[in-house]
Simulated scan of single mutants.
Amino acid sequence: MTQKLGNPAGDGAALLPLVAIVGPTGSGKSELALTLAERFNGEAINADSMQFYRGMDIGTAKLPLAQRRGVEHHLMDFLSVKEDTTVAAFQQLARDAIADIRSRGKLPILVGGSGLYNRAAIDVLEFPGTDPDLRAALERELEQDGLAVLLQRLHEVDPVSAARINDGKRVVRALEVHALTGRPFSSFMPERKYVSPTVQIGLNGDRAQLHKRLEARVRTMVNAGLLDEVQALIPEGLREGRTAHKALGYQQFLRVLDGESTVERAIEETIVATRQFARRQLTWFRADPRVQWLDWSQKDLGEAAAAHVKAASQPGA
């Protein structure tokens, strides 16, 4: 049964929180999003950066249309595998979708495990611009003069960033931002401050159980035709894009098609890489004290998550 959230005074849409469901891959975020969407008349907004790509369905565990239970999903399948996007561009798309959903009196539900994309949607986070010519000039200096020279220059204008970063790409970016804005790159670091009313619900559970789930998930993907999906995306430009071919499973099975690996080796490498990715996701989201953690295996998961949504929708929450 659909339940209505809102302000008893009448301005219901203004108090509808953004619900962000976070956690490691394989923890059941998509299913919980459907449960909450059905319960509170919500719509889902995808924050998994690899589900942006058309045709990358099996390997990203993208919910097929028939399994979305009539729940509208936003920001899926809007890029070809040759295209790329930025976190800044996603931020605008996500916030537009959130505003649209709220304007129709519905509950926006952000779901996905791409940590920085999640932060971009929910938090006060400013993205400085870029200048391709300036970037190219700094990259030439890096190649000619070496990292130590550029790092010393960064230390003079932004000692905080210089103490935190030491790889060439990020040093170039920090110098580019300072040259463009006159501000240190460190001043653009994100705050843990919601841009609008938000509740984050995190899913976690037994680590051994997660490992088993991830292995079963990878093998199910392979049985469902992951290798054929990768092969079909090659003519669409999978190899040419900067990002899509790096997705878990896709890079491993591209090597199978190139004769550099076997299916079983690709399966094992994908399982290991997926476990490592899940560990990084947990590290990222655990660092945020605002996340309300739930055990994915608890019998009353839907009720427990719904309680957090209701609490966040109350006046003064």
Rank of each mutant, 00 (worst) to 15 (best):
D158I: 05
Y117P: 03
E156N: 11
L134W: 06
D228I: 07
E260T: 04
P17Y: 06
V81P: 07
A317L: 08
L238F: 12
P315E: 08
G70K: 08
T2C: 00
L32I: 11
D158G: 02
L175F: 02
G241R: 01
G302I: 07
P184A: 15
N46C: 15
V81Q: 10
D131F: 06
M189R: 13
L257N: 12
R104Q: 14
V309L: 01
A305R: 09
R242P: 07
A47H: 06
H178R: 12
N46K: 00
A136S: 15
F285Q: 10
L65T: 13
M50T: 03
A148N: 15
W296R: 14
G249D: 11
S114P: 06
R242I: 03
A89Q: 14
V272P: 04
A94F: 00
R279Q: 09
H155I: 02
Q51Y: 00
L5T: 09
L134Q: 11
Q276W: 00
L93Q: 09
Y250D: 06
R286S: 13
A47K: 05
L214R: 01
A14G: 05
G249E: 06
D100P: 01
T181K: 09
S27N: 05
N204F: 01
Q276G: 09
F277R: 13
L282N: 11
L116S: 09
D131M: 10
N46G: 09
D167F: 13
A208V: 06
E240T: 08
